[in-house]
Computed example of a mutant assay.
Amino acid sequence: MRKELDTSILQWKNKPNNYVVGRSRIIFETMPYTDLWSRTLLGTIKNNAHSITFKIEQNFTFSCKVNYHFKKEYDQAGLVIYANDDNWFKICVEYIDEQHSLLTTVVTYHGFSDCSTTSIGSAVETMWFRVTHYNENIVVENSFDGIHYKQMRIFHMKFRGDKFEVGMFAASPKESSFDVIFEDMIVEDCIIKEENIRY
């Protein structure tokens, strides 16, 4: 089954001052000095990024179109999965400068974040992301057109409760603020089928 996300079930973590939650679109403006990172290299814990999530327990696939207009270094927007405060994941585009940005995945396990990145041009201001949960394994993908997806990462994450929190996030780690639009938010049955897995 494939359906649009019911935005009435969404809940905020670190609600921004300026936002609109519509039936098929979410728009908000980030606030300065917000971020999502834990301990590694920097030694600090930042968990004040703006995120809006829903709870889900079964195997699933969630995809979303992200439109962003970054202004300063490290401005970022994408999707997030929370098992709890010490175990979470984010996939996003992260602005570096006028020439290049980063496609970034961060897996935080037992309170420590790790990060992998791929460079893209900063002229790109729209990205589709897709996350699939299959028996405590998560596959993450990105697309430049919403049709052709490329795999970015696979990792293992256990529930730290009865459900995951899944949704959208954005943050401005420096003295910055930008507008972000999330749309085409689709929840569907897990697209990974056991018979298609290679052994």
Rank of each mutant, 00 (worst) to 15 (best):
Y95T: 08
T53E: 06
A170C: 07
K15V: 12
K90L: 08
F144H: 13
T118K: 14
E136G: 12
I147A: 12
T34Y: 02
F178E: 08
V187E: 08
E141H: 01
P173N: 13
L36H: 04
Y68T: 04
I120H: 02
H133K: 11
L36C: 08
N87V: 10
Y19N: 05
F60N: 06
H148Q: 13
W37G: 00
Y199N: 12
C115D: 13
T53S: 02
T132C: 05
V131F: 03
F155Y: 06
S113M: 02
D75A: 07
G22F: 01
A171S: 00
F89W: 06
E125D: 15
N196I: 03
K193A: 11
N196L: 05
Y82K: 00
V80K: 02
V21C: 08
S8T: 15
V106Y: 04
G22I: 03
F178L: 09
Q151H: 08
V106K: 04
I52F: 08
S172T: 05
M185C: 08
F144A: 13
F62A: 03
P32T: 07
N135Q: 13
F28M: 01
G146N: 09
T118I: 15
Q58K: 15
Y33E: 00
E57N: 10
V21N: 02
N47E: 10
V93D: 00
S143E: 09
F169T: 00
Y109F: 14
F182K: 01
E195C: 13
Y95K: 08
T40G: 10
S177G: 14
R2T: 15
H50T: 00
N18E: 13
K150Q: 15
K65A: 08
G43C: 11
F164D: 02
T7H: 12
L5M: 04
R25C: 13
W88D: 04
N59T: 11
V107R: 06
